[in-house]
Design a protein around this nucleic acid. Structure first.
Length: 315
RNA sequence: GGCGCCAUGGCCAAGUGGUAAGGCAAAGGUCUGCAACACCUCUAUCACCAGUUCAAAUCUGGUUGGCGCCU
C-alpha cells in the first residue's frame, strides 16, 4: 500500500526543522500543507522555510503561486496528489507537513470534491443575504437539506452558502455527500504525527516569533507585495495572518503596535483551533514535546512507529 | 495629620434599592471548495465587617487598599 507520513502540529511548535531531519532519515520529500507558503514573495509572515534550511530535501507546494492567484482545498488536493505520484515514481516517501488540517484530511482520505463550475449562483446568494438576512438563507437550506441546516449555524453564512451552492449544482444534498466521504477509509498506509507542547510555552513561542517577523522586515515585505501585485482584498493570500494586519496598518487604520497585538492574539487563536482540529482527527499520534524535548528524541520515536507500521524497513 | 474621590470576574466596563449588560483575554467545540477562513458555547454574586430594609453591588457606619489635593 502507498506510504505516507504526516507531520503536523500547531503553528510555531517547531515542525520545520524536524521535518527536514525526518525527510533525510527516511529518504522523503516534503509536501507543504499550508495555504500561505504556496505563495511567492510571502516569506517572513508565513515563516517559510528557506532554501538553505531545506538542505537539499525536495519540497513541493512552496512558492508555486502568485499572491494574485486563488488557492483552496481542491487546488491543493490536485497539486498534492500529483506531487505524491511523482514522489512514488522516484521511490521516495511523501511527507506532508504544514498546519492546515483540512488540507491534510483532503489528501489523506482522498476526499472527492466534485466538479464545481461557477455559474454565478454563489454571487447571487451573497447578495441575497445582504438583502434578506442570514435566517432567510438558512431557511432556504432547511428546505433543500434539512440535515445540513441543522448542522450549520445560521450565522455561518459561508457554510450555508456552500451547502446551497452544492445542492444547486449537483441536485444532491451536501450532508449526504459528506456522510459518504466521511465513511471512506484512507487509501494510504500512513502515520499521522501531531506535535504538541504545553500551551503556555506555545503561546510564548508564537509571541516571540511575531516579534522576530517584525524585526526581519514584515512591514517591508508587505509593502513589496503591494507594489508588485494587484491584490484584491478578498484573495486568500491577503487573508494570511500577519499580512492582513500589516495591510491595515499601511492603510493607516491601526497603529503598528495594534497590528502586532492583533497578529499575536489571532495567531494564538489559530493555534488553538488547529489543536482542536487535530484532537478530533482519528488515528493521530501525538508527540508531546515536553517529553520528547529534542528533535532527536522526536525522530527516534517517529522512526520506531514508522517501522512498526511497515512504512520504513526495520534494520 | 486634614479634606475629597474611588474600590464590580484575568483586564476594560454598565448598573445608584428588587435580585449582576457588554467587550477583550482565557477555555471548550464545529468544520468535506474561501480553512492563517467562517462559525458556536462558556466564566462573578459586586474589597471586608456591621447596620437600615420585605429586598442592597446600589443607603448608613466602620475597616482595608488606591488616587488627588492641602498643611
Amino acid at each position: 500500500m502507498n506510504k505516507l507520513i504526516v507531520l503536523t502540529g500547531p503553528t510555531a511548535v517547531g515542525k520545520t526543522d524536524l521535518s527536514i531531519k525526518l525527510a533525510k532519515a527516511v529518504n522523503g520529500e516534503i509536501i507543504s500543507a499550508d495555504s500561505i507558503q504556496v505563495y511567492k514573495d510571502m516569506n517572513i509572515g508565513s515563516a517559510k522555510i528557506t532554501e538553505d534550511e531545506m538542505q537539499g530535501v525536495r519540497h513541493h507546494l512552496i512558492d508555486v503561486l502568485s499572491p494574485e492567484e486563488d488557492f483552496n482545498v481542491v487546488t491543493f488536493k490536485n497539486m498534492a496528489d500529483k506531487a505524491i505520484k511523482e514522489i512514488y515514481e522516484r521511490g521516495h516517501i511523501p511527507i506532508i507537513t504544514g498546519g492546515t488540517g483540512f488540507y491534510i484530511q483532503a489528501v489523506l482520505n482522498d476526499i472527492d470534491f466534485k466538479e464545481n463550475e461557477d455559474d454565478g449562483y454563489r454571487a447571487y446568494l451573497e447578495n441575497l443575504v445582504k438583502e434578506k438576512g442570514e435566517l432567510y438563507l438558512h431557511d432556504m437550506l432547511k428546505e433543500v437539506d434539512e440535515k445540513s441546516a441543522e448542522a450549520i449555524h445560521f450565522n455561518n453564512v459561508k457554510k450555508v452558502i456552500r451547502a446551497l451552492e452544492y445542492h444547486h449544482q449537483t441536485g444532491e444534498k451536501i450532508s449526504e455527500h459528506n456522510e459518504t466521504e466521511r465513511a471512506k477509509k484512507s487509501p494510504y498506509n500512513f502515520a499521522y504525527f501531531v506535535l504538541d507542547c504545553e500551551r503556555e510555552k506555545l503561546y510564548k513561542r508564537i509571541e516571540k516569533r511575531v516579534d522576530i517577523m517584525i524585526e526581519q522586515g514584515l512591514v517591508d515585505e508587505v509593502k513589496g507585495l503591494l507594489n508588485k501585485y494587484d491584490l484584491s482584498p478578498d484573495s486568500v493570500s491577503v487573508q494570511g495572518l500577519g499580512y492582513k494586519e500589516v495591510f491595515a496598518y499601511l492603510r493607516g487604520e491601526i497603529s503598528l503596535d495594534e497590528a502586532i497585538y492583533i497578529i499575536k492574539r489571532d495567531t494564538r487563536h489559530f493555534a488553538k483551533r488547529q489543536l482542536t482540529w487535530f484532537r478530533r482527527e482519528k488515528e493521530v499520534i501525538r508527540i508531546d514535546k515536553d517529553i520528547y524535548d529534542t528533535d532527536e528524541k522526536c525522530l527516534d520515536y517517529i522512526l520506531g512507529i514508522l517501522k512498526e507500521k511497515g512504512i520504513i524497513q526495520s534494520d
